[in-house]
Amino acid sequence: MDIKELFSLKNKTAIITGGGKGLGAQMAIALAEAGANIVVCSRNLEACETFCKQLNENGVKAMAIRCDVTNQEDIQQVIDKTVQQFGTIDILINNSGTSWIAPTLDLPEDKWDKVMNVNLKGMFLFSQAAGKIMAKQGSGKIINISSVTGIKGTNPAFLDAIAYNTSKGAVNSLTKDLAIKLAAHHIQVNAIAPGFFPSKITTAFERTNQIILSRIPAGRFGTDDDLKGAALFLASRASDYMTGQVLIIDGGLISSI
């Protein structure tokens, strides 16, 4: 198999949660450029529809669906509509996420629950639903979006978001265990742990941006292209013998701390 075939996603179908903008859209574009059909879903249907229109204009088969990833019925609707439209689900990128910035001793219980429900419960429920389809097919790729903040604790002066950090640490554990549980079905489960990329969530860090930047050896934040290669690698046959791994993309931040 030549290198182009290894990385080709022609006739493959990918679901990207939270895929209408930000990092989700970046990864969706990468998969679309490799030939995949794209399904993007989030609570913000308008953003998903606008994004899909752009993909359609570039010759990509794309579909937008409204979905709250904490709602099992919403998830199943996405699964059913995707299979109905495209016949298969080959790739799932669990990208939906939320955060809450607050001092640890003052974090409200409901905000803890909100972060855990979106970042962890929703990821499991979507993986479970898509995994059933992939198991029947005998193949599939699940890519979970984690964070460097889930790998080490963070100084509260740097980032005071214990629920977010904890949820992303749990995502890493979920990734490793799902990889083992689903390996017999020839489903690979891996995670990407981005560093600091401009996004809706990272706007909460604006007051500490210069501090963060000073600690990144690469001397810059992530760009619109920095996740595309990793997403394509993990979504393609090039990563068929890689599972249960957390791929860190952070400009050297974690290595330097």
Rank of each mutant, 00 (worst) to 15 (best):
T104K: 08
G22H: 13
A170Y: 05
S173V: 14
S8Y: 14
K4I: 09
V118L: 06
Q128G: 03
I201G: 08
I162M: 12
A157M: 15
V39W: 09
A47F: 07
L55A: 03
I101Q: 14
S167H: 07
I91N: 01
E109V: 13
D113N: 14
K111E: 15
F7G: 10
C67P: 02
V78P: 08
G87S: 09
L234Q: 00
I192C: 04
N172K: 03
A28T: 02
G195R: 00
G195T: 03
I180K: 14
F7T: 06
M134K: 12
S147R: 02
D113H: 14
I201R: 11
T175F: 01
N58D: 15
G87I: 09
T243Y: 06
N119R: 10
T82C: 12
T149C: 13
Q84K: 10
G97N: 10
L120P: 03
V115Y: 01
E109K: 12
A62I: 04
Y241S: 11
S99A: 14
N58M: 08
E33R: 11
F124S: 09
M63S: 10
A130K: 00
N95G: 02
G59K: 07
T70V: 03
G169P: 04
I38N: 04
V171N: 03
D74K: 01
D240G: 02
A64C: 08
K176S: 13
L247Y: 11
N165L: 06
D240Y: 11
A14G: 08
A170N: 07
Q54P: 03
V69Q: 06
A25R: 11
N58V: 01
N144W: 01
V171F: 01
R215G: 10
A230P: 00
A30V: 05
K181C: 11
F7M: 07
I91M: 05
A14Q: 09
K136V: 11
P194G: 01
F158L: 15
L55M: 13
C48S: 12
K136Q: 15
S167D: 02
G150D: 12
A36M: 06
N37E: 09
M27L: 09
I133Y: 07
I211P: 01
Q128H: 13
N155T: 10
T17G: 00
Q245M: 11
N37Q: 13
I79Q: 05
K200T: 13
G138C: 03
M1Q: 10
T175L: 07
L105Q: 13
K10Q: 15
I249Y: 04
G150H: 12
D226E: 06
D74F: 05
G252E: 03
A28H: 05
G122R: 02
G169T: 05
W112F: 14
V115C: 01
A32K: 08
P194W: 07
F197K: 00
K12D: 02
N95R: 02
L105G: 12
S239L: 08
E109W: 15
N209K: 15
